[in-house]
Structures are given as structure tokens and as C-alpha cells.
């Protein structure tokens, strides 16, 4: 009998600190597109942060002497009809895009996770009300809600951030609630209940840490969607009010002049496309790295469209 306790001293491998992150990184590395995407996103973030300081001109600075100047050494991306340096416009647009999309995603995330966790854990009436709200949000194209909010609130940075962020919560709420429901009756929660953990303790120590990966992935998928919504608002004339620069404004304006001054379209559109794709690749890589057992179907759907938010427009 002593055999059991005495000689069974299995060689437990002491793990590297944060072994899970390390493993996730190894899985992430395998996806070359995701690594490239991460590099692009990093460049985007850095340029967006330092952009206003390194930009050759202020975004509002017009120089009619150099209106519609093609790309040159002085104006690498050319200039538009008001003589705005397009490179500066792109850098400032990045700054605005980062502020708005990250802010909006965090806002959607905060509202959605709170409501989803609460509903999933409490069940009953609270859950039902939340889920009807979620259904309502899904029934209306998110873009129109954003449109409506912009009209109501205005067209500067904060109103647009709120207009994009507020309607986005339903995604997160539904995802969190689904995950919580899956875990609520599972053995992990049952074990915690069995040693007397309260509901709040279970939510904090057992549920939240286990939805964080999926949330991170969802945010990564959410940001390019928010970017698109933001550009879409500009295209219909309800984006950031010029002279505040944004990719949508630039592309919308360039569309009118694409034959005469094609550089106005090339540079902003190409950069915008690269940013969008990079985020999608990163999100895809994160999905594989953090939720390695996730189903292929969903991933592919998101890769080739905007998946969960398919009815964007």
C-alpha cells in the first residue's frame, strides 16, 4: 500500500512561467500571414501614435500652390485639390482611426461582457431581457444604428466613437453568454460551487479568465469591422466632418477624381486595405493560437467575410 504514496513521485515537469502564453505564441508563429499581419499592425499603431509629430504638415493646412500635385519627393503621396499633403492626411487618419476603433471596440466589449456575464450567470428574467435586446440589435443592421447615432450626436471624434461602439455590444454579450452557459453547468463550476464559492467569486476566478481568449479574438475581429463602419459613414457623408481626415473621407473624395488624380485613391485605399487585412490575419492567427480546438467553419467564414457581422451594410 505504501507503494502508492512512496514510490509514485511522477516527474512533474515544472513549467516555464506563463506556459500557456508561450504555447499560444508557438501556435501563432506557425501562421505566417498572421505574423506578417501583426508586423503591419505594429507599424500602423506606431505610425498612428507618432504620426501627428512626424507628419510634414498639419491635417488642416492647405496649400493651394500645390493643389493636385502628383507624388514627388516633397509630397510622396501627392496632394489633393486643396493642396493637403496626402502623406500627412494618411498619418492623421491613422491616428483618428486608432482612437475611434480601439475606443469603440473597448466600449462594445465593456458593455457586452458585463451584460453577457450577468445574463448567463443569473439566468431568468435578466437573461431573457438581455437576450431579447441582443436579438433586437441583431435584427437591425448595425450600420444604420451607427448612422442614426451620428445624426443625433454629431460628427467629431467622440460622437463617432460612441456611435460605432454602442451598437457593437450585442456581439460580445451573445458570445460571453454562450460561453458562460456552456461552463455554468460544467464540472469546473460545479466543483467551485461544491467548495462553497459564491457566484461573484465563480464569475471572477473561473468564468472571466476562461472567456478572455475568446474576447481577445473577438476584439481583433471587431476592429476591422469598426474600421469599415467608420469608412462607410464617410462614404455616405456622415463620417468625421472634414477637415478632420479619415480614410473614408479620402477615399470618398478620391472616388470623384479617380481618373484625373489617381494617386488620391491609390495610397489611402491601398494602405486602408493593408490595415484591414492585417487585422483579419491577426485575428485569424489569434483564433488558432488561443482557441486551437475552435471549429474551422467559423474561422473560415470570418476569414472570407466579416462573418458574425455579415449583414454589415
Amino acid at each position: 500500500m505504501a507503494v502508492v504514496s512512496a514510490t509514485v513521485g511522477p516527474g512533474v515537469r515544472v513549467p516555464r512561467r506563463h506556459a500557456q502564453w508561450w504555447l499560444a505564441w508557438r501556435r501563432y508563429k506557425r501562421n505566417k500571414l498572421a505574423v506578417a499581419g501583426a508586423a503591419c499592425v505594429a507599424v500602423y499603431l506606431v505610425l498612428g501614435l507618432i504620426g501627428p509629430w512626424v507628419a510634414p504638415q498639419n491635417y488642416a493646412q492647405a496649400n493651394f500652390l500645390y493643389a493636385n500635385h502628383p507624388p514627388s519627393l516633397r509630397f510622396p503621396f501627392g496632394t489633393d485639390g486643396l493642396g493637403h499633403d496626402m502623406l500627412s492626411q494618411v498619418l492623421w487618419s491613422m491616428r483618428n482611426a486608432i482612437e475611434i476603433t480601439f475606443g469603440a471596440s473597448l466600449l462594445s466589449f465593456a458593455i457586452g461582457v458585463t451584460l453577457g456575464l450577468w445574463g448567463g450567470l443569473r439566468g431568468g428574467v435578466a437573461d431573457m431581457v438581455i437576450m431579447r435586446l441582443v436579438d433586437f440589435m441583431f435584427a437591425i443592421p448595425q450600420f444604420f444604428l451607427s448612422l442614426f447615432l451620428v445624426v443625433a450626436m454629431g460628427r467629431t471624434v467622440w460622437p463617432i466613437l460612441l456611435a460605432i461602439g454602442i451598437p457593437g455590444w450585442a456581439q460580445y454579450a451573445r458570445l460571453v453568454r454562450g460561453l458562460v452557459l456552456g461552463m455554468r453547468n460544467g464540472e469546473m463550476v460545479e466543483a467551485a460551487r461544491a467548495f462553497g464559492a459564491s457566484r461573484a467569486h465563480i464569475a471572477r476566478r473561473y468564468l472571466l479568465p476562461n472567456v478572455s481568449n475568446s474576447m481577445l479574438v473577438q476584439i481583433a475581429f471587431g476592429i476591422p469591422v469598426d474600421l469599415t463602419v467608420m469608412a462607410g459613414l464617410s462614404v455616405v457623408g456622415l463620417g468625421l466632418r472634414p477637415p478632420l481626415p479619415s480614410f473614408g473621407n479620402m477615399i470618398a473624395q478620391a472616388g470623384a477624381n479617380v481618373l484625373g488624380y489617381p494617386w488620391l485613391m491609390y495610397f489611402p485605399a491601398a494602405i486602408f486595405a493593408v490595415i484591414l487585412l492585417s487585422f483579419l490575419f491577426v485575428a485569424d492567427g489569434l483564433q488558432e493560437a488561443l482557441n486551437p480546438r475552435a471549429e474551422d467553419g467559423g474561422r473560415r467564414a470570418r476569414r472570407f467575410g466579416f462573418g458574425a457581422r455579415g449583414r454589415l451594410f
Binding site: V3, V4, T7, V8, P10
Partner: peptide, 8 residues
């Protein structure tokens, strides 16, 4: 009779 240890 327990077999001590485990397969690795």
C-alpha cells in the same frame, strides 16, 4: 497490485 508510476 498497483504498477507504480505511469507511462510517459
Amino acid at each position: 497490485r498497483a504498477i507504480p508510476g505511469m507511462a510517459t
